[in-house]
Design a protein around this nucleic acid. Structure first.
Lengths: 346, 346
DNA sequence: TTGAAAGCGCTAACAT
DNA sequence: ATGTTAGCGCTTTCAA
């Protein structure tokens, strides 16, 4: 095994100089640095991560805690975990994955022993024991999501309220006066769940109220048949909505499209469609569906950035809400029989 | 920060005795051990993981490498990652997650520096660069899956061939002479993909040949409409299969059930159904579907067991295929119009 | 710009 | 059964 001593010896310098040169720290004469690098290369020297962690007090590992709950969607979770991994790697960190069992216990463990340098808390609940714990830990942490009490925390998340508003604004602008909202299962709106479904719904309904748009809300369970039946019922009333906003699982999108096809309604001629806060690609549906996407990479990139700043320095507690943006795939048009404002904004 | 020195001092022993007592190694008098434990508790002593890793050469972290490819199913991947995490924790290990980018590079990195003690390779391809690399590494690794060349490797996997056989046997026994096989998308059967889809199909078709059962195979893409159309076509021929075997994504199951309902076929009276090698619960469909399940926990538990044995000792290279088992939910009956052998085996 | 040297906190070989 | 002690390989302070 070749150590930094070997490199120093071959390069004819002291180990401290070798260390400085290899880490790009301190001041080393260019010629010396090159000599050391060549020696390291020649000897195929690899820094011993354990020794480095011990000496420096840094492991270059971040804990990522992501419980998997029944009321949430696997693909979304996976997207965030992957995004967190990607972001961490951009800064030369690896991630240690903490799952459901041992949510708080695991955090305590990897934290008290110094296994990780920081914590990324994903998929946070309105009231989350991991957040309570994180507040008391000396290891820095960042929350992706918005718990009820954000005091003393660094939180990053999509502005779900604004995302809900944005969908309504787009539809109102196209002339829709009555929209259907297909939300998550009812359980997702209870106070003990994540709070992004209610946040989105709040933005949507408040903006609708402001703009004089009626909203029919349904919250189908996570299975194709229920979703399909619910959508069919939603559209089979005397005065059906002329547009649908979806904040639901992927299968509900399929179900909605199938239900519409079955009812003989065309998108976007008869019914307009917008999907809000999804991590999957809504362009793959036929027809493609307009979206206000939830980009896991954005949240995780920013969260990681802040976390690393906390690791070597101080960061003021804060709540950073990322502005939503609109992706047009042509699934919104003005309602049938109206000659109102143009469907496409200028 | 309280160290083992503090514990030793308070307990009135040497640090080595404290270390032995705290780690359950060496021989320490029960009374002494208790004294040390009380001291540790009182001081809220936590082993410094970095120092321990440095001194012992073990980090108690396993790398789990799981690329995410387009041709595979997120929920399956997630199931295996979670199962790996769970298994690791059972043995007091944490997992460091390596994703697509840096598949081989990441392995090299966490391996050459001693960041991890071992590697769990998930979702292995028939020809997988990670496997090639793992063969050359001094850090032990275990493969979940079966690459083309298993020489020198420790591999664990469900016996997909036997799983395919089992499904056919069950149906043949119930009297079916023609079955439909709904497989993964065609791309999954190419040599550069994972090899479990072909393995399953091989077992199924060979056993069918042996038992005189005709097999109509379809390989729909991963979207609801294609799946549904394909299933409808499969059943809309002059002599349709009387049973379906599914080795496909979850949405294809929904699609198949919908297609059957649309065609007016009842399960299991008109058509029998078996789902093979799925990680999701096939009982949640209505009707519930018989299964030869793929239990991620089984594979990962055994893989981890072997990996840990490799970490402190030697393990002979091997390929361990786990026997499939059948879960009856009543979705198999004898074909309509036959009065042959009973549908349920004794 | 470079080098000498002091640990970091723990494990484990060895001595008692 | 318990204690002494030598590192583990690196980072970093301090001196030159």
């Amino acid at each position: 095994m070749t150590t930094i001593h070997d490199v120093a010896r071959v390069a004819g310098v002291s180990i401290s100089t070798a260390s400085y040169a290899l880490n790009g720290k301190g001041s080393v004469a260019p010629a010396t640095r090159r000599r050391i690098q060549r020696a390291a290369e020649k000897l195929d020297y690899k820094t011993n991560a354990r020794a480095r962690a011990f000496a420096s007090g840094r492991t270059s590992i971040l804990a990522v805690t992501e419980p998997l709950r029944a009321d949430t969607f696997t693909s979304n979770h996976m997207a965030f975990v992957l995004a967190a991994a990607k972001a961490a790697r951009r800064y030369d960190y690896d991630i240690l994955l903490l799952t459901q069992e041992e949510a708080a216990g695991g955090l305590r463990r990897v934290t008290s022993g110094g296994t990780v340098d920081g914590i990324v808390i994903l998929d946070v609940l309105t009231h989350d024991e991991r957040v309570e714990l994180a507040r008391t830990l000396k290891v820095p942490s960042v929350v992706v999501g918005v718990p009820a009490d954000t005091a003393g925390l660094v939180c990053v998340d999509l502005d779900f309220v604004a995302a809900g508003r944005m969908a309504v604004q787009r539809l109102a602008q196209a002339g829709h006066r009555r929209i259907g909202f297909i939300g998550h299962p009812a359980a997702s709106y209870r106070p003990e769940a994540s709070n992004f479904p209610p946040r989105l719904r709040t933005g949507l309904t408040e903006e609708a109220g402001r703009l004089g748009v009626a909203v029919d809300t349904v919250t189908p369970e996570v299975d194709y048949r229920t979703a399909r039946r619910t959508v069919t019922e939603l559209l089979s009333v005397r005065e059906p909505p002329t547009a649908l906003v979806l904040h639901a699982h992927e299968e509900a999108h399929t179900a909605a499209l199938e239900a519409l096809a079955d009812l003989g309604r065309t998108v976007p001629d008869d019914v307009s469609l917008i999907s809000v806060a999804q991590t999957f690609d809504t362009a793959r549906f036929s027809p493609a569906i307009d979206a206000v996407p939830l980009v896991a990479e954005r949240s995780c990139e920013r969260a990681t950035e802040l976390l690393l700043a906390m690791i070597d320095g101080d960061v003021e507690p804060r709540l950073e809400l990322l502005s939503p943006f609109y992706v047009d795939h042509g699934s919104v048009r003005r309602p049938p029989g109206t000659a109102g404002p143009p469907a496409t904004p200028t």
